[in-house]
């Protein structure tokens, strides 16, 4: 199997709904440097087709979060900069646009670790999410409360007192208030119980299906991510090392072993197979 397979998804490998439109987000050879010395991304190219879900997988420190920050324009706040390549969103070059302008264009990011406004009420958190659109409109609020009915009863509660699952719902709802056409989520399942993780991915799939929102999601739980995603990218050490349709990735022996925890023939991985590790990582 070719590991840098850039050809379109094969019919049998394609996910049923992967027939998205043109790429709405296009990263071309993005290079990111932190503090002028640390090279975090070494030429990353990603395309996300309109109305699809793309998953970004990979180990810690691979540059997944940096990729999302590059797209959302948050790098300057962390002394990072895009030193090469360009990012196009809806056929517009947004490489050096400031973060607020990108939100207005329809790019929203849910940062890793939830980042609710702890001391603001749930309702105020949602109002803050609608900042670029003026005040929170009734329909937007209704839509969020319809997606996350749990939040209705918590409206006046300070968001910091919500449980982890509720906070994650709030963060997604807050991002929805900006009516993004591209929603990026950085490890939405972090620190959540498995059933809650399933719920979160359910919301993401529903958002994508009903509102047509394009989604780019970072996830450690590859099984969960590849279940809802149409396309996946695997990053390591600042590069994309593997990409393909979700089905292709699910069946890739390397992904199976390193990210899905499965052995050769779909068996659960055991320590007997650990000797394969070095040999298997041949995509590096």
């Amino acid at each position: 199997m070719t590991l840098r397979d850039r050809s379109p998804a094969t019919p049998e490998g394609a996910h049923q709904a992967s027939s998205g439109g043109d790429p709405v987000l296009r990263l071309h050879n993005i290079e990111v440097i932190y503090d002028r010395v640390v090279l975090a991304l070494r030429g990353v190219s990603i395309e996300v087709a309109e109305g699809t879900i793309a998953a970004l997988l990979g180990p810690n420190g691979a540059g997944k979060s940096t990729t999302l920050k590059a797209v959302s324009g948050l790098l300057p706040t962390e002394r990072g900069e895009i030193s090469d390549g360009h990012i196009r969103f809806c056929d517009r070059d947004v490489t050096h646009l400031d973060a607020a302008a990108r939100v207005r264009l329809g790019i929203s990011l849910c940062m890793e670790g939830r980042h609710v406004f702890k001391h603001l009420t749930v309702a105020d958190n949602l109002a803050a999410g609608a900042y670029t659109r003026g005040t929170a409109s009734r329909e937007d609020l209704d839509l969020v409360y319809e997606y996350f009915p749990r939040l209705v009863g918590l409206r006046r509660r300070a968001a910091g007192y919500l449980s982890g699952g509720e906070q994650q719902q709030l963060v997604i709802g807050r991002a929805m208030m900006a009516r993004p056409s591209l929603l990026m989520l950085d490890e939405p399942s972090l620190g959540l119980a498995p059933t809650l993780v399933e719920d979160i991915f359910g919301y993401i799939a529903r958002l994508n299906r009903e509102l047509g929102t394009t989604v780019l999601v970072i996830e450690q739980n590859a099984r969960q991510a590849l279940e809802v995603a149409h396309r996946g990218y695997v990053m390591e050490q600042g590069r994309i090392v593997l990409e393909g349709s979700a089905a292709q990735l699910r069946n890739n022996p390397d992904v199976k072993e390193f990210y899905l925890g499965l052995g050769e023939h779909g068996r659960r991985k055991s320590y007997r197979d650990v000797k394969h590790y070095k040999r298997r990582k041949h995509w590096l």
Binding site: S72, L74, T77, A99, A100, A101, R102, V103, R104, S108, L109, C110, M111, H115, V116, F117, K118, H119, L120, A128, G129, Y131, T132, R174, A175, A178
Partner: peptide, 11 residues
């Protein structure tokens, strides 16, 4: 409350 999160809302 949270400057970076506010920035992701376009504030």
């Amino acid at each position: 409350d949270d400057q970076q999160a506010a920035l992701t809302m376009g504030i």
